[in-house]
Amino acid sequence: MFTGTRLAHLLSTISRQLFRQSTEKHQADRYVKRCISWQLLVTLVSSHVTQALSLRSLVTVSETLGPHSYHLYAGPVARSTLSDALNKRDYQPFQDFCELLLCGICRQ
């Protein structure tokens, strides 16, 4: 019997459809080949939970997601790809996500 990881339960609170709509609206994944915005979000959330402090530790956390990549819809990311994504990616979908998350928290 499969049981989800705690990270999967944490990410289940995020509406992938709303995040994808925001990504399409801001064209954040335009010209992206390897690390889409959702994969970057999963990496950043898991890195925040594990308190990763450097790019190397971000990559290490990303590599530990390997066995769970099917369920999280995100796989490991190379260090250079992650560095490029953090430097060049549009921040607007992530800002929209945080605003939606904060609005949901304020309503409760």
Rank of each mutant, 00 (worst) to 15 (best):
R20D: 13
C103W: 11
S47C: 11
C98F: 13
W38C: 00
H71I: 09
P76R: 03
T81S: 11
Y31P: 00
L44I: 09
S37D: 13
L10H: 10
L44G: 05
C35P: 03
V45K: 02
L82F: 04
S54D: 07
S47Q: 08
H9Q: 11
R107V: 12
I105A: 08
I105C: 03
C98H: 07
K88Q: 07
L101Q: 10
H68R: 05
L44Q: 04
L102K: 09
N87I: 00
A85E: 00
Q39Y: 01
A74M: 05
Q92L: 09
S12Y: 06
C106N: 12
S54Y: 05
C35M: 11
A78V: 03
G4E: 11
L7Q: 00
Y91C: 04
T60P: 00
R56N: 09
E63S: 11
G4S: 11
V49Q: 10
L82W: 01
P93Y: 02
L40T: 00
E99Q: 12
L65T: 06
A74H: 04
H48Q: 12
Y70M: 08
T3I: 08
G75Y: 04
V32S: 00
A85S: 15
E99S: 08
L7V: 03
S69T: 01
T5S: 15
R16A: 10
K25G: 07
Q17R: 14
H9G: 06
L86S: 08
S80V: 14
L82P: 01
S12C: 08
S47W: 05
P67Y: 08
G75E: 03
S83A: 15
P67M: 03
A74R: 02
V49T: 13
S22A: 14
L55Q: 01
H71M: 12
C98V: 14
L18F: 13
T64V: 11
Q108G: 09
L11H: 05
S15C: 12
L101G: 06
Q27W: 03
Y73W: 10
S80L: 11
V61A: 05
Y70E: 15
A8E: 15
R6M: 07
S80K: 10
R56E: 13
K33E: 11
T64A: 12
T13Y: 10
Q17F: 09
T64E: 12
C35N: 07
M1T: 13
Q17A: 15
